[in-house]
Design a protein around this nucleic acid. Structure first.
Length: 634
DNA sequence: GATTAGGGTTTG
């Protein structure tokens, strides 16, 4: 119950803020730095909020009193700020606490009880506030994607930043710049935690309890500014550690590869790095306690026999681990398998040691890829002889067509039962002759949008104009007895902007008159046209090299894909700006520029290994297949 | 009473 006279607070929507005013606002927390000691005299907390107007506001909150800063525990919490000053910084508005600043914080979960967290003794809280919180919860549930940064230890991957809710079991000062925290959350990491060398270190905490819990505990090193905070923490307390970094350590011995996970809380406060004590009443802490109770029991059940064989010194070596335990890591993946889901995941370090041919399911990040320029990644692939050819550039194509067009159209070959012919003579180009043969359907000329034309002597730009109007265009020349296809350096069929090419090595050309045997003469399916003309069609294919990294090893794999992986037809991408933008967007998601690999998404891929002999050198190559970019990425 | 920081990962 409020003990102050009811004040009618007015809350300003975040899209209506003006510099130089003092306002009251509500918002959903999008980002925050838990309170930390600034370089001045105060604690500082930076909080970015958003409301139903979808406008964000970053607030700088200072106070000499830690407790006076908002009690934000995770993104998605809802805050109410009173007497927030709005000022302009770098052409944008920002909030800063002004005299009399006060805050309330609420859980953001739909349906959770609406209980304000605050250090204020007296505060106004009405039915209207209740409604504001619930409205923001509803809005956030529909408009803000849930954050994936809160992870259990069992779901942690190597090379990752995440927030950990845990209980502090032990602590020890390492040196001035780093401090060790031993924590647990009741689950087991996919790789055993590293063990920070403990000789000469004084550990505060129940050592026998820590030993008993074995691999349920992890070692975290915190650095620089976090050391002071860590020192002050009480063993047994419940913590949330923000933006904790994992790193996989791989040690190769003769018999096996031993992997362990390092946990670092780096110095600084970027990305909200920090530690916060959670109250026992917090719903996440209540859940954690339950997990600890049940985990404690299972750990004790088989700890006695293990404990006796364990060295009793304070240095606990990390145990060896089944490489297949990578499988236990589960996270949303930017690519998914279209087949072979039964396969277990294999770490790259294991694949790199094995002979080919094999097939694997892997989970890795795309460290880099080649080529960077899109047009360089599209090639023509022959499914029969597997040769790869470059797609002719426009300039080359123009020359190829001109070279082929030196023959004068032979009038004897015009106007046959298959086609109706028309001849043009240019006036200003030395009397160059162009013959267009309109292919009939059942002896009748079809509409232009269904009509296949054969063209002799046309330039590339003329062909472009005609292919815009007619269904299909085939460049031809006059042969001895019949019209003939040009050299297969030129496309055998042009439809719209797509040029269809045939394999020079595998095709054996047949007479043009065979076009009469194409069953469907209104859609002129390229494969049908190719078949009757004796052409083995080349497929437009993305050919890229992916450098994959899963923290255990780095592997180069080829991607040879015509449509399945990107779900973009390689045949159309060279002439379609929108498709090019889509592909660039996908690549920027798979391999984001300008950020560290830790925040790259994981890719799940199916890869095959195979042997390649090059002269005397034998090499194992890897190729990605049966994999596609996940729907939410596209 | 001003300052702090002004989100955008360490290199242990």
């Amino acid at each position: 119950m409020s003990l102050v006279p009811a004040t009618n607070y007015i809350y300003t929507p975040l899209n209506q803020l003006k510099g130089g005013t003092v306002v009251n606002v509500y918002g959903v927390v999008k980002f925050f730095k838990p309170p930390y000691l600034s370089k001045g005299t105060d604690y500082c907390s930076v909080v970015t909020i958003v409301d139903q107007t979808n406008v964000k506001l970053t607030c700088l909150l200072f106070s000499g009193n830690y407790e006076a800063l908002p009690k934000i525990y995770k993104n998605g919490d809802i805050v109410r700020f009173h007497r927030l000053k709005i000022q302009v910084y770098k052409n944008d508005v920002q909030g800063i606490n002004s005299s009399g600043f006060a805050s309330l914080t609420f859980e953001g979960t739909l349906g959770a009880p609406v209980i304000p967290r605050t250090s204020s003794k007296y505060f106004n809280f009405t039915a209207e506030d209740h409604k504001m919180v619930e409205a923001l919860r509803v809005w956030a549930s529909a408009h803000i994607s849930p954050s994936w940064t809160l992870l259990k230890l069992c779901d942690v991957q190597p090379m990752q930043y995440f927030d950990l809710t845990c209980q502090l079991l032990g602590k020890a000062e390492v040196d001035g710049a780093s401090f060790l925290l031993k924590v647990w959350d009741g689950t087991r990491t996919p790789f055993p935690s590293w063990r920070v060398l403990m000789q000469d270190l004084v550990l505060e905490g129940d050592l026998s309890h820590i030993h008993r819990l074995q691999n349920l505990t992890v070692d975290i090193l915190v650095y620089d500014n976090h050391v002071q905070v860590a020192k002050s923490l009480k063993v047994g307390s419940f913590l949330r550690i923000y933006s904790l970094h994992t790193k996989l350590q791989s040690v190769n011995t003769e018999s096996q590869t031993t992997l362990s996970l390092e946990f670092h809380l780096h110095g600084g406060t970027s990305y909200g790095r920090g530690i916060r004590i959670l109250p026992e009443s917090d719903s996440d802490v209540e859940q954690l306690k339950k997990a600890l109770e049940s985990a404690d029991l299972t750990a004790k059940q088989h700890s006695d026999d293990i404990c006796q064989s364990e060295p009793e010194d304070s240095f606990l070596s990390s145990g060896s681990v089944s490489l297949y335990e990578v499988e236990r890591c589960q996270q949303l993946s930017a690519t998914i398998l279209t087949d072979h889901q039964y396969l277990e995941k294999t770490p790259l370090c294991a694949i790199l040691k094995q002979k080919a041919p094999q097939q694997y399911r892997i989970q890795a990040k795309l460290r880099s890829y080649k080529p960077k320029r899109l047009f360089q990644s599209v090639k023509l692939h022959c499914p029969k002889c597997h040769s790869l050819e470059e797609v002719p550039h426009e300039g080359d194509l123009d020359r190829i067509l001109q070279d082929g067009a030196t023959k004068t159209p032979d009038t004897k070959l015009q106007n046959t039962p298959l086609y109706y012919s028309k001849l043009w003579t240019t006036e200003d180009q030395g009397g160059r002759q162009i013959a267009v043969h309109f292919v009939k359907i059942n002896g009748i000329l079809p509409l232009s949008n269904e009509c296949l034309i054969l063209i002799e002597g046309g330039t590339l730009s003329e062909i472009y104009k005609l292919s815009d109007k007619f269904h299909s265009v085939i460049p031809v020349i006059s042969g001895h007895e019949d019209l003939e296809l040009m050299d297969l350096s030129a496309p055998y069929l042009i439809q719209g902007k797509v040029h269809h090419y045939g394999c020079k090595r595998c095709s054996s050309l047949r007479p043009i008159q065979n076009l009469d045997s194409v069953a469907d003469k209104t859609s002129w399916i390229p494969s049908s046209v190719a078949e009757v003309l004796g052409i083995v069609p080349l497929q437009y294919t993305f050919v890229m090299t992916f450098t994959l990294d899963d923290g255990t090893g780095v592997l180069e794999a080829y991607l040879v894909d015509s449509k399945k992986f990107f779900q973009i037809p390689a045949s159309e991408i060279l002439t379609d700006d929108d498709l090019q933008k889509t592909l660039e967007m996908i690549m920027d998601i798979l391999c984001p520029p300008g950020v560290k690999i830790d925040v790259y998404p994981w890719l799940e891929c199916f890869i095959r290994s195979y042997n390649v002999t090059n002269g005397t050198e034998r090499q194992i190559c890897y190729q990605i297949s049966d994999t596609t970019v996940a729907e939410d990425v596209i």
